[in-house]
C-alpha cells in the first residue's frame, strides 16, 4: 500500500461540449496539507466533488485508500465518505439547527453514542475552533468567519482521515483568515489527517501548505512546495503567484479581431 491516501489518476471530466479536466494526475500523501490552486472556473471545486464521489469522472479514476471511488456502490461510497470531512464554501450549516446540533449531526447520524458523550464530544470540537461559547446560537446569528469555523468543527466531528476545504478563505476578513489558516494546520496535525485545500488565495496558502498543485486549462500546470513555486520560472505560475493582469492567462476572453468587429457593424 502506498503512502498516498488519495490518488487521482489520468482523470478527465466534463460535459459534452466542454471538457473541464483533461488527464489530471495528483497524489495526496498521508498527514500532509496539499493545496489545489487555480483561477476561477478552472474546476477546482469539481475536483473535490470527484474525490467525494458526487460526480462521476468521464475517464480515469480517483482512488481513496486504494479504492476506486466511482466503482463503489452506495454503501461502499458512504463508507468512504465517512472517512472524509468537507468544509463547503459557504459553510453549508443546517439553518434549522443550532450550532450544537449542527456539529452533533454527523455524530448522531453515524454513531449510537449516549447523549452525555455526544455532548462532551461536540463541546470539544467547538472548543477546538474557539466557539464553545456559541453553541446555542443559530447559524443566522453567526458572522461569516464564525459560521465557517462551526462548519469546520462539524467536518472534523467524526475525526476524518481526509479533510477537504472548498475555498476556506473566500469572503473573510484578515483576522478570520489567519484564524482559519492556523486551524487547518493544527487540526491536520493533531488529528493526523490529510488536508486537501482548494483555493486561489496565494499568500495564505503558501504560508502553511506542504505541497501545491496548480490547475489551468484542465491539466496540472505546475506542482511543488510553496518555496519551489514562489521561485518558479513558469510563466503561468509567475503570473498567478504575483497576480499579474496579463500573461499566459489572457486578460481578454477569446474574441474576434477587435478592429474588424468595430468596423464591421452594419445597421
Amino acid at each position: 500500500m502506498t503512502n498516498n491516501i488519495v490518488e487521482i489518476d489520468n482523470l478527465s471530466f466534463g460535459y459534452k461540449t466542454r471538457m473541464l479536466h483533461k488527464g489530471i494526475n495528483m497524489s495526496f500523501p498521508r498527514g500532509k496539507v496539499v493545496a489545489i490552486m487555480g483561477g476561477s472556473g478552472s474546476g477546482k471545486t469539481t475536483l473535490l466533488r470527484l474525490i467525494g464521489g458526487q460526480l462521476r469522472p468521464t475517464k480515469g479514476e480517483v482512488r481513496v485508500t486504494g479504492k476506486v471511488v466511482h466503482q463503489q456502490n452506495r454503501s461502499g461510497l458512504y463508507d468512504l465518505r465517512r472517512k472524509m470531512g468537507m468544509l463547503f464554501q459557504r459553510g453549508a450549516l443546517f439553518s434549522d439547527l443550532c450550532v450544537f446540533d449542527n456539529v452533533a449531526f454527523p455524530i448522531r447520524e453515524h454513531t449510537d453514542l449516549p447523549l452525555s458523550m455526544i455532548h462532551d464530544l461536540v463541546l470539544m470540537k467547538l472548543n477546538a475552533v474557539g466557539l464553545r461559547g456559541a453553541h446555542k446560537m443559530m447559524p443566522a446569528e453567526l458572522s461569516g468567519g464564525m459560521a465557517r469555523r462551526v462548519a469546520l468543527a462539524r467536518a472534523v466531528a467524526l475525526d476524518p482521515d481526509i479533510i477537504m476545504y472548498d475555498e476556506p478563505f473566500a469572503g473573510l476578513d484578515p483576522i478570520s483568515m489567519s484564524v482559519i489558516c492556523d486551524l487547518i494546520r493544527t487540526l491536520n496535525d493533531t488529528l493526523g489527517a490529510t488536508s486537501i485545500i482548494v483555493t486561489h488565495d496565494v499568500e495564505e496558502t503558501f504560508s502553511f501548505a506542504d505541497y501545491v498543485y496548480f490547475v489551468a486549462n484542465g491539466v496540472v500546470a505546475a506542482e511543488g512546495t510553496p518555496d519551489d513555486l514562489r521561485n518558479s520560472d513558469l510563466p503561468f505560475v509567475h503570473q498567478f503567484v504575483h497576480g499579474e493582469k496579463d500573461g499566459p492567462v489572457p486578460f481578454h476572453y477569446p474574441a474576434p479581431d477587435y478592429r474588424a468587429e468595430l468596423m464591421g457593424y452594419k445597421a
Binding site: 467525494g52 458526487q54 461510497l77 458512504y78 463508507d79 465518505r81 465517512r82 472524509m84 468537507m86 463547503f88 464554501q89 459557504r90 453549508a92 450549516l93 443546517f94 439553518s95 449531526f105 454527523p106 447520524e109 453515524h110
Partner: peptide, 18 residues
C-alpha cells in the same frame, strides 16, 4: 430549494447521510 442553494444537501451527502 434553499437547502440546496445553501449546499446543505451536498454537505449531507458528503457526510454519508442520504
Amino acid at each position: 430549494g434553499l437547502m440546496k442553494a445553501n449546499e446543505e444537501l451536498s454537505a449531507m451527502e458528503m457526510m454519508a447521510v442520504s
